[in-house]
Each structure stands twice: as structure tokens, then as C-alpha cells.
């Protein structure tokens, strides 16, 4: 009995160390939050378009899967992600829309004129309300919405080549985005 009790501390420690080792595995980011919105209907939004007088609204975009990217001109990682978005936009089956999060429209426009505009349409979310409804907690964030208007996936932080190839594009194919 005494021996068993004496073994308890080292046993508990090994369990703890196991957890620590698990948390150090490559690719694990404790800061990343899963979205609470997965498989729920995308929140309604109806935003002024960045260019022209049109509007970018959820209900107007329904019918086919789409990718919504929250960005801002003041966001450094957005610049890093941008070339990837440009390439992504060239693929015929990807309907990529942008939402300019808490950004002055003229700044967003300058940002896009410098780096290129990958989006089919851009909504201006000046006060960040749409971002709040989506559960955005830092830009860039990218959401995949299916044809019925349900959020299927969220990418936090800048998209990577691997995330696009292994997750985003296969998901779009499954959703029948072609």
C-alpha cells in the first residue's frame, strides 16, 4: 500500500508530461478557436459594396458555395495571405467574396489597387458588426459557406498553401461548387 501511494506522484507527473508532450506536437496552436458557427446558418448581412452603389448581402449570394474572407488594409498578415487569394480567385469554381473589416473604404481600395483585387464583391463592414456576428476575433479569417447558406469551415489567420490545397478546395469540391 505504502509503495503504491509513493508511486502516485510520479504516475501523476507522467500523465501530466504526456499532456504537455501532446500540446507541443507540430501544428497544434492553442490559440486557435474552433468557430461556434460551424454547421449553422451564416448570420444575415447586407453591406454596402466597396465599389459602386450595389450591396453585398447574404441572401443575394445564396445558391452556390462561397468563400468569405475578412480582411483589412491595416492587417499585416492579410498582405501575406494576399497572393494566395489572388491565385485562388483564378480557379473557376471558387466564389471568393471579401468583407473589409473595420477599415476605411478608401484604405481598402488603396490596399486592393496595390496588391490586386481577388474578390467577386466586397462588403464594407465599417463598424465590424458583421464580423462580430460571424464570430471574427482577428483578421484575416476565412469562412466557407455552402449552397444552403450554412457555415462549414473557418480558417483563422492567414491562409496557407497547405490549408487551401488540403482543406479548402476539397471541401468546396464536396459541396459541389463546380
Amino acid at each position: 500500500m505504502r509503495r503504491l501511494i509513493a508511486l502516485l506522484p510520479v504516475g501523476l507527473f507522467l500523465v501530466l508530461a504526456g499532456y504537455f508532450a501532446w500540446s507541443l506536437r507540430p501544428g497544434y496552436d492553442p490559440h486557435e478557436l474552433p468557430s461556434a458557427m460551424i454547421d449553422r446558418e451564416a448570420p444575415a448581412f447586407d453591406l454596402a459594396a466597396l465599389a459602386g452603389d450595389g450591396r453585398i448581402a447574404r441572401d443575394g449570394l445564396k445558391g452556390q458555395p462561397l468563400v468569405i474572407n475578412f480582411f483589412a488594409s491595416w492587417c499585416v498578415p492579410c498582405r501575406q495571405e494576399h497572393p494566395l487569394l489572388m491565385r485562388l480567385a483564378k480557379q473557376a469554381n471558387v466564389r471568393l467574396y471579401g468583407i473589409a473589416y473595420k477599415d476605411k473604404p478608401e484604405d481598402s481600395a488603396r490596399f486592393l489597387s496595390q496588391l490586386g483585387d481577388p474578390y467577386r464583391g466586397i462588403g464594407v463592414d465599417r463598424d465590424g458588426r458583421t464580423g462580430l456576428d460571424f464570430g471574427v476575433y482577428g483578421v484575416p479569417e476565412t469562412y466557407v459557406v455552402d449552397a444552403a447558406g450554412h457555415i462549414r469551415k473557418r480558417f483563422v489567420g492567414p491562409l496557407t498553401e497547405a490549408a487551401v490545397e488540403k482543406e479548402l478546395l476539397p471541401l468546396l469540391r464536396r459541396l459541389g461548387g463546380s
Binding site: 509503495r3 509513493a6 508511486l7 506522484p9 507527473f13 508530461a17 504537455f20 507541443l24 507540430p26
Partner: peptide
């Protein structure tokens, strides 16, 4: 930095694991 994390974890294993193992053997 994960490399640092891994190194400290090894340190923990040796220092804490070692001392508690010694405890398990000697304490009774």
C-alpha cells in the same frame, strides 16, 4: 518557440520525473 518547449519538457522529465521516481523508491 516549440523547440524551447520540447527542451524544457525534457528538463522537466529528468528533474521532476527523476526526483519523484527516487521518491517512489526511497520514501516507503
Amino acid at each position: 518557440d516549440p523547440a524551447r518547449g520540447t527542451f524544457i519538457l525534457l528538463l522537466l522529465l529528468v528533474a521532476i520525473g527523476g526526483s519523484l521516481a527516487l521518491f517512489a523508491v526511497r520514501a516507503p
